[in-house]
Design a binder for these strands. Structure first.
Length: 422
RNA sequence: GGUGGGGUGGCUGAGCGGUUGAAAGCGGCAGUCUUGAAAACUGUUGCGGGGAGUUCUCCCCGCCCUGGGUUCGAAUCCCAGCCCCACCGCCA
């Protein structure tokens, strides 16, 4: 969330940010409520100071065994008034909290303003492969090779779930291991294996709640949620903690399954691996000092790009425009892998800087070495990378005329040296 | 799931209705000593909000798991919830 003081002092800036995100929110009502709160709080604090002083006096009288009845009697009215003001304050606080949790982060000035058509291609890497036959989609390829069973996944669970089989399952596992190994051994990340279920506080901390509750799988009996991304459990590792500056930056990487209801997207990408309710992903999460977060973002994107480069999959990097930016992000790059069969760019990674937005919600701070003061860290995360769509890109880009799939060189070591699925 | 015990500052831990924001110890920071370090000694050391002032202090309010309640007054008493520990039961 944003700093309420910042909102108070820069209302026009916040309004402009909301407008750039194409969001309607009555900020003036919020600001008015906030000033009401401050007025009540002022009165309340004066009364409490009065009460505290009287308490000391009563205490002193009783100690000297003198009569304090009058004093005690006169404080009853003050206490009643305090009580009433406290109730008023509580009510306003509830309303303020409700609103501030729905105010998104302020987009960074460097990003384009507008709808997704304003997303900017920053760079492209690799050449689209040319075929002397008509390339198939990953759906046909996988079914013919019997490495993904879409129909039985639907039988077991429902539509848009995946059942990998045989070399399909092994290839998935190889990809996970390859990515984790790359990030831990070469990029300096520490591997984490977190819970796949998280509580409400964690979901609030990273900003999935309250806005996106309908997109989340939820366990009603326990008030737990299936994670939509490892970002949630991993960022919340340090919720309500104060880190030592010397420990920063912290780099974590984690494999998890990700669960998304994708409510309201029916009819879009309904076949294959493109939009599924459960997919695997290797995620990178960083906790950094505020002044470093934008250079850390560039490094994060580079780490994700390297996965695609080693797999030799053509991709492009997009800087998202204000209306395409997720709720908590200040700046975000998407990586899109090219899939030859579908002839489409597939989003396989999102790398974002949240600045202090998540840290403030999750109360993640650090103590500065110089003056021993505490401040919020900046958090970042990026997919490194998402598996299902990467699988689709591999199948489509590495397909051969006979329908077999060449295995990318970097993965062969994870697959008994096998070079082809046929 | 059952029974019992417990949640206090960075940590250990005392307090169990009235100068207690909280003893003591450890840790951290600064100083003395030392060529330097260690040891010893001395001092200092929570977070959030608001105000006066303006780079240095001062004042006020809140915070002893969370949320209610009792009371002139709650870390301390009562209720609910969450979490932790021990034992029993169940179990991959």
């Amino acid at each position: 969330m944003l700093d309420i003081k910042f909102i108070r002092e820069n209302p026009e800036l916040v309004k402009q940010a909301l407008k750039n995100r194409n969001l309607k929110l009555d900020l003036d009502a919020f600001i008015k409520l906030d000033s009401q709160r401050r007025e009540i709080l002022g009165k309340l604090e004066d009364l409490r100071a009065k009460r505290n002083k009287a308490n000391d006096e009563i205490s002193a009288l009783l100690k000297e065994k003198k009569d304090a009845k009058d004093k005690i009697g006169s404080m009853k009215a003050v206490s009643a008034e305090i009580n009433q003001l406290e109730n008023e304050l509580k009510e306003i606080d509830v309303q303020l909290d409700k609103i501030i949790l729905t105010i998104p982060n302020i987009p960074h000035l460097s990003i384009p303003v507008g709808d997704p058509t304003q997303n900017t291609v920053m760079r492209s890497w690799g050449e689209k492969r040319t075929f002397n036959f008509k390339p198939q989609t990953h759906i046909d390829l996988a079914q013919n090779l019997d490495i993904i069973d879409f129909n039985r996944a639907t039988k077991i669970t429902g539509s848009n779930f995946i059942l990998y089989k045989g070399w399909g399952a092994k290839l998935e596992r190889a990809l996970i291991n390859f990515m984790l190994d790359l990030h831990t051994s070469k990029h300096g990340y520490t591997e984490i294996f977190p819970p796949f279920l998280v509580n409400r506080a964690s979901m609030l901390g990273t900003g999935q709640l309250p806005k996106l509750e309908e997109d989340m799988y939820k366990l009603k009996d326990d008030d737990l949620f299936l994670i939509p991304t490892a970002e949630v459990p991993v960022t919340n590792i340090f919720r309500d903690e104060i880190l030592d500056e010397t420990k920063l930056p912290v780099y974590y990487t984690a494999y998890t399954a990700c669960f998304r209801r994708e409510a309201g997207t029916y009819g879009k990408d309904t076949r294959g691996l493109i939009r599924v309710h459960q997919f695997d992903k290797v995620e990178m999460v960083k906790f950094v000092k505020p002044e470093d977060s934008y250079t850390e973002l560039e490094k994060l994107v580079a780490n994700a790009e390297e996965v695609l480069q080693i797999l030799d999959i053509p991709y492009r990097v997009l800087m998202l425009a204000t209306q395409d930016l997720s709720f908590s992000a200040a700046k975000c790059y998407d990586l899109e892998a090219y899939a030859s069969g579908l002839d489409k760019w597939l989003e396989v990674s999102s790398c974002s800087n949240f600045e202090s937005f998540q840290a403030r919600r999750a109360n993640i701070r650090f103590r500065k070495k110089e003056d021993r003061k505490v401040d919020f860290v900046h958090t970042l995360n990026g997919s490194g990378i998402a598996l299902a769509r990467t699988m689709a890109a591999i199948l489509e880009n590495y397909q051969q005329e006979d329908g077999s799939i060449l295995i990318p060189k970097a993965l062969r070591g994870y697959l008994d040296g096998k070079d082809r699925i046929s």
